[in-house]
Design a protein around this nucleic acid. Structure first.
Lengths: 330, 330
DNA sequence: CTGTTAGCGCATTCAT
DNA sequence: ATGAATGCGCTAACAG
């Protein structure tokens, strides 16, 4: 910066003023400085700036398996919104979601001096880890913990599951079977709850849910079990990948979808429309979730960390060809 | 840090030494300092450290659409390896991959003082953007540019395509049709080239490739065309999502896979094994690519930016049920 | 082994 | 409208 000042024949704080869009700079001085900046290819040192302003303009994201479509899309939304607002995003992807891993990640990020943290770790067990944040650091959880003192942005999981279940019920199915996500995930619980509620509201029997883990393989295993059971006509899988596994198993067993069994998924991944048959599913607007996270975070940065919001994004529903009216039971 | 020093009854320098694992500290002093650190919940300020060491311990990643499986997996590998090596990762995801976007992203990251940059922007046009890096900043490109002065880590795309094509040829197919990726992508070119080479080596006719864009939708469109053509018995799609689209179109047209037409993909996404039928495909070890990127980067950081490596990861091949011996032409 | 001194590059007073 | 001084929290170089 001193070089630029010398080049432009001004002091280095004038350069600083130009860089920060300070009003008190004569236009021609500003022009001279800007010219010197480009000529020298000068780039300011954000570490030094962070040191004095105590703002790093850096946001931290802690996420589980960023390879999955949901987290990846959410993070994409976060990154876009953050960059637009002039913030960097530093990401930590976790292999496991136990308290210690999350805590370590948060410690790690807070050493780096992030101005705020988004936690995409939708497991009940991850909640307490937020405590290791330096107090005053804004935080927002995606599909977050139920603790009252941290902001949450989420998609209404239960509502999505209800949409799926009702759709099936309205098609004339007597009941709906459910393949769940892994235990301890908040999405798993929300979807389970919405499914159960929809069934109970309609006065239908609630079959034992089949355990899954988000993977197509788990869906496949569940599909085999389903095919072997009597009277199954409708299945709601807790995500699209598992629905794919179900579809596959059913197809191998010679069960026609949707003629004999209807299948609904959750997520609306890009592939869903091209499954065999194209999948009816619940759509989540991950992008919007990401944007909301940043909005909430920035609001907290301005307002001081006191505020705490809860933003719920409604799910959508996409009807394709994997669902049909229940076969007439002879 | 001064607080810790006071608490432990030492100078702040000694605290610094403890933090940096300096050898010259008596064990009991070290213990006292560490105890004070945990008691006070002290966290060092990495911005200040970066200011004086001129090392931010932060790596930048510029990537296109991190929502896609390939980039997402690569970044995951990068992040894991970087964190293990004690580096943070700051990510910029681009919506488009033109020179300006990439250049802006790189400018942005270099203001932040990243110690090195990984560019996951496998388009020919993205190459020149690397020039705007402050000279001396190590950089590595994934599937990178062909310029000689920047390190590259890549998967042997042409070899993968060759594997796929040969597999089909060995199954007795007279020739193999190809659905390409979008133009200007290096992967598109590599796969196209490998496919063509395998065909020519075997003295087979090279049909006009069908244009695609990685999306299942494009695969679907290509699949419709293919179904309408005569004598098509084998298709090599440039990625798994397009293969899925091809599968879907063929199924709608009543064409049996693999009985009438064999289909091969590229990537081995987690869903591939559960397509209808399970997809034969080329496997890419994205994780290893990510790890290699970090290794190369760190090596350049140590050695000075002079060195420039080129690391090629061999592709794998997974045979599943979407390919079979060519139907006997009557 | 430990403490003292200096300065990294910037923004923020306060002068002028 | 501009310049001079001060310090952010830390590490490096040198003393002791």
């Amino acid at each position: 910066m001193a070089d630029v000042a010398r080049e432009a024949g001004v002091s280095h704080q004038t350069v600083s003023r130009v860089l920060n869009d300070h009003p008190n700079v004569r236009p021609d001085t500003r022009a001279r400085v800007e010219e010197a900046i480009t000529r020298l290819g000068y780039r300011r040192n954000l570490a030094a700036r962070a040191l004095v302003t105590k703002r790093s303009r850096m946001l931290g994201v802690v996420s589980f398996d960023t390879t999955l479509y949901g987290p990846a899309s959410t993070i994409y939304g976060i990154e876009q919104a953050a960059r637009t607002a002039g913030y960097f995003v530093s990401i930590v992807s976790l292999k496991t979601l136990d308290v210690d891993s999350v805590r370590d990640a948060i410690d790690y990020l807070s050493e780096q001096g992030v101005d705020g943290v988004v936690v995409v770790a939708p497991r009940r067990s991850a909640g307490p880890a937020l405590e290791s944040l330096p107090s005053g650091t804004p935080a927002v959880a995606v599909e977050g913990t139920l603790r009252g003192d941290v902001s949450v942005v989420c998609i209404d999981q239960a509502e999505g599951a209800r949409l799926a279940t009702r759709h099936l019920l309205e098609l004339g199915h007597r009941t709906v079977h459910h393949v769940t996500g892994p235990p301890d995930w908040l999405e798993t619980e929300g979807r389970l709850e919405g499914w159960r509620a929809a069934l109970e509201e309609a006065g239908r029997p609630v079959p034992e849910p089949l355990p899954g883990d988000w993977s197509p393989h788990a869906g496949y295993a569940a599909g085999r079990s389903l095919a072997a059971m009597d009277g199954v006509t409708a299945v709601f899988a807790a995500n699209d990948q598992m629905a794919l596994g179900v579809l596959r198993a059913l197809s191998e067993e010679g069960v026609k979808v949707p003629d004999q069994i209807s299948v609904v998924g959750f997520d609306d991944i890009p592939e869903s429309a091209f499954f065999s048959p194209p999948l009816t599913t619940v759509r989540q607007d991950f992008d919007q979730v990401g944007r909301h996270c940043i909005e909430v975070l920035l609001r907290q940065l301005d307002a001081g960390a006191g505020t705490c919001e809860r933003l719920v994004v409604p799910p959508g529903f996409v009807v394709r060809s994997s669902t049909a009216a229940a076969a007439r039971v002879p």
